[in-house]
Design a protein around this nucleic acid. Structure first.
Lengths: 110, 110
DNA sequence: TTGACACATTCCTATACAGGAATATAATAT
DNA sequence: ATATTATATTCCTGTATAGGAATGTGTCAA
């Protein structure tokens, strides 16, 4: 077998750097395809194809307005990635250690 | 061109579900290849090959002990993933807003 | 109805896996 | 030296891209 398809899950869809750029560009604001084309500086079919993958995997949603298609991020589909990576965060920063210590203290004091 | 190589960056390395399992299995504790083989129930070459990719991309580190090789997670290489996905978190929960508020308060009180 | 505009899809190709099977390498024990 | 243990590497193959070029589809305007 080959690699896991890009449309299999958010991890694979987001592995492609350009698809991350698309999601960043969308950010909070809904954008049309042409707005993305201009913003990113890629050709239109390329943008459309990446949007197609993101849409298949549920990372963006599409709304039709006249001959335009407005795309927006569906952030909840990124939650599995966050949930997977978050537990490792304590290893590179102390913020959470401090928080853990604080919570432990609060627990004991209670 | 084809897809971005799995060894290109942590995003691509971690797109493969089995490699995420390896990182989970390692967690905090260093494990030998055979311990991983037993823990995961895969054949040995498969485990070694996935470890090879993870090592190339810097997500695990290797230590030789006799004829064994002990592997451990290098969590800092996961930071780019966390940093990329974290800004989206506010869209599905409010927890971090509260945490940020708490940390800001602690900072000021200090 | 004919253009023009906005966007999607198809066709093509080079590339890169992931998994299985077999084999190679390195270190220890006998 | 030889066998054994622990692990890595090589060879093979089917599959799935990502990018470029060309074309198709749907919608609005004159």
């Amino acid at each position: 077998m080959a690699r896991t398809p890009t449309t299999y899950d958010p991890f694979n869809a987001v592995a492609e750097p350009k698809r991350r750029q698309v999601l960043e560009a969308l950010g909070e604001k809904e954008l049309s395809v042409n707005e993305l084309v201009e913003l990113l500086g890629w050709n239109q079919p390329s943008v459309s194809k990446h949007l197609g993958v993101l849409k298949q995997v549920g990372l963006v949603e599409e709304r039709r307005v006249g001959r335009q298609r407005m795309y927006r991020v569906n952030a909840e589909r990124l939650k599995p990635i966050f949930d997977w990576v978050a537990p490792f965060e304590k290893y590179w920063t102390e913020r959470f250690e401090r928080l853990d210590t604080l919570l432990e203290k609060m627990k004991k004091e209670k």
